[in-house]
């Protein structure tokens, strides 16, 4: 080994050790556990595919996947919103940073704090949302105590929380679009709206694609909001509002069925891989790499 190769190994070692210890090893042990019955104490026993078979017939798992899927679809609606907002902020000539900071604040706020504040906003009797709705004569609901509304309520918060990071990525994408393209189209008589749909969106599509991938992965892993907003002692909406990661947490760390929990985590990993692969396949038809 040459001395420079040795130095190279030394330099990548911290990252590699971290990767192995924090990602690879836990992943492998989760994978192994998914084929085991792991009691709270004592040795685990191999049970083959039992966990997966049980999982396939478990209505609770299907419901949780359904909830996570609904949440993901709803949060994706935040992306068009982010594109429009990013384009609008780009138009602002003064105080652009102020807007960016305002939208970015929820990203750097503790999810626990965000959850607590929104729990108050959504409160059916004393909440701000219902109070505002009452000005317009609209009857409020128990947004986070009625399973018909919980996922929608979470999605609204999820969009709001994700907006900041999306705006930063899309904003960077916008600045990479040459000004000359807009000037040329203006000379040809294109208005702002036309420019948005025919220049901004296509040229921004690689960034939009990237943001979509990140959003889907994050949405399928939603956990904190439900943990903070619904985990009060007697919230009767919890049973029907669990997301897949919440269910994983409950199985592995409340009921101590770690093998079953591990199987849920592995299935979620596969679902996320499929969803991501699908998006890469689909991007060929809409993402424009100029």
């Amino acid at each position: 080994m040459t001395s420079s190769a040795r130095w190279a190994l030394l330099f990548v070692a911290p990252a590699t050790v971290g990767l192995v210890a924090l990602y690879l090893w836990p992943f492998l042990s989760t994978f192994v556990k998914s084929f085991q019955d792991v009691p709270a104490f004592g040795p685990a026993t191999y049970t083959g595919l039992d966990n997966y078979v049980e999982l396939a017939g478990d209505g609770e798992v299907w419901q949780a996947f359904g909830n996570s899927a609904l949440y993901t679809v709803l949060v994706l609606l935040g992306i068009p919103l982010a594109v429009v907002l990013a384009a609008l902020i780009e138009q602002v000539s003064r105080g652009r940073t102020v807007y960016r900071v305002l939208f970015f604040l929820p990203v750097v706020t503790l999810p626990v704090a965000v959850g607590m504040v929104w729990r108050f906003i959504y409160n059916g009797d004393f909440g701000l949302l219902n109070h505002v709705l009452s000005w317009f004569g609209i009857d409020g609901h128990y947004w986070v105590a009625d399973a018909r509304f919980t996922i929608y309520a979470f999605a609204a918060v999820g969009i709001w929380m994700g907006l900041g990071i999306n705006l930063i990525i899309l904003g960077a994408g916008l600045q990479a679009i040459p000004k000359a393209v807009y000037e040329a189209s203006a000379l040809d008589g294109a208005g702002r709206v036309r420019q948005f749909f025919h220049i901004t969106v296509p040229l921004l599509s690689p960034s939009i694609f990237f943001v979509t991938i990140l959003t889907v992965i994050a949405a399928l892993q939603m956990f904190d909001l439900i943990f903070i907003m619904l985990r009060s002692v007697n919230n009767t909406a919890l049973a029907d509002s669990k997301t897949i990661v919440y269910l994983f947490y409950e199985k592995a760390f409340v009921q101590f069925q770690q093998g079953y929990g591990a199987a849920i985590a592995i299935v979620l990993l596969i679902v996320i891989m499929i969803a991501t692969a699908l998006q890469f396949r689909l991007q060929r038809s809409w993402v424009f790499y100029g």
Binding site: G124, D125, Y142, S232, V233, N234, N235
Partner: peptide
């Protein structure tokens, strides 16, 4: 129950 879910 809904009220008691929102406010313990």
């Amino acid at each position: 129950l809904k009220q008691l879910s929102d406010t313990e």
